[in-house]
């Protein structure tokens, strides 16, 4: 083996990786910068791709980048957007507090930001903040869970990354419904950090101490799918699993008799709305909408799962 060829291949690979990080076509059109968390999550990928497609349809040039939930990297990407003369930024931000500065900086440079999926803790800085109504989604998910459980039995709750605002909002929504039923007992509550592998291991351990588990309610779909795999492996297929997000994998699982329900966040709809409002803002001077807009989530069950596509109705 010749190590020089290997080194060359490695170098080539790293160039490809770097090139993949940012894509920008240049032409005389106005630029809309789209910045989202890592696209290894189909949710953010759908969001970024829908926004880019909608922007191109309206005649804009687009740049799509990921901040990987790193506020510092987000700051650099906003700087880059300003430097490239973007006319608007579509942003799924890297933290409710840590993103305020970046959005203010864009505003100071005369570039309106349209926030999607996650809010920031400041008003009047972004031109719009369009989020899915996580609280409403959590309550309809919990109501379906209660119905499936027959209003009684032991259940496990898997919480998302506890430093994430949405993890907190969802668990609050779950408990505002679940805690009204005396027959439901929370046997264990653990964070699985949104991760499938972590949910798998944690559920395996939890069922060792709680053999009577009747249901698992999870703060997102990947954790629900991890729980479902662990339960299946332990011969506990009958345990009810409910997720959150409406990811394509979860919908496929619902259709094949795996998890029982999920709550679909209309990520595609939100991304489209954000670009439409950006266009309106740029052409008419105002979005014509209040800054904060919450879009309702929808319950997905075996009955209606066939009607849903990539984070939206087909």
């Amino acid at each position: 083996m010749n190590f020089r060829t290997l080194v060359a291949a490695l170098a080539a690979a790293s160039v490809i990786v770097m090139a993949g990080c940012g894509t920008r076509e240049s032409s005389g059109k106005k630029l809309i910068a789209i910045i989202t968390p890592s696209n290894d999550n189909p949710f953010f990928k759908a969001e970024a791709e829908t926004a880019a497609a909608e922007a191109r349809k309206l005649g804009y040039e687009t740049s799509v980048n990921s901040h990987d939930d790193d506020a510092h990297k987000q700051d650099q990407l906003v700087d880059a957007a300003i430097a490239h003369g973007a006319v608007a930024i579509i942003l799924d931000n890297a933290g409710a507090d840590s993103s305020v500065t970046a959005v203010s900086k864009a505003k100071a440079a005369g570039i309106p930001s349209f926030l999607i999926d996650r809010e920031i803790n400041a008003k009047g800085v972004a031109a719009a903040q369009i989020v899915s109504n996580n609280y409403q989604g959590a309550t309809i998910g919990a109501q379906e869970f209660v119905r499936l459980m027959g209003e009684k039995g032991d259940y496990v709750e898997l919480v998302g990354r506890e430093s994430d605002t949405n993890a907190g909002i969802r668990t609050r929504g779950f408990h505002d419904v679940l805690d009204k039923y005396d027959g439901l007992r929370l046997a264990s509550r653990q964070s699985a950090n949104w991760s499938q592998a972590e949910a798998y291991q944690k559920v395996e351990t939890i069922i060792q101490g709680n053999r009577n588990i009747k249901g698992v309610i999870a703060g997102n779909d990947t954790m629900a799918l991890g729980a479902s795999a662990a339960l299946k492996n332990a011969g506990l297929e009958k345990v009810i699993v409910v997720g959150f997000d409406g990811s394509p994998d979860a919908i496929a699982s619902i259709l094949s008799g795996g998890i029982k329900a999920t709550v679909l966040q209309p990520a595609a709809t939100i991304a489209r709305l954000a670009v439409e409002q950006a266009h309106k803002f740029l052409t008419a001077g105002s979005t014509g909408m209040p800054e904060k807009q919450a879009i309702d989530c929808e319950l997905v069950t075996p009955v209606n799962a066939g009607q849903f596509g990539l984070f939206g109705r087909k």
């Binding site: 696209n39 189909p42 990947t222």
Partner: peptide
């Protein structure tokens, strides 16, 4: 090539992760 192990494997940590993302286009093979 006498690259310090910390740096060499830090680099390949990123390359391997990026390669995995590229191969699945960021998606999960379910």
């Amino acid at each position: 090539l006498r690259v310090a192990p910390f740096i060499a494997t830090l680099g390949s940590m990123y390359v391997a992760r990026g390669a995995a993302m590229l191969m699945s286009n960021g998606a999960t093979f379910a």
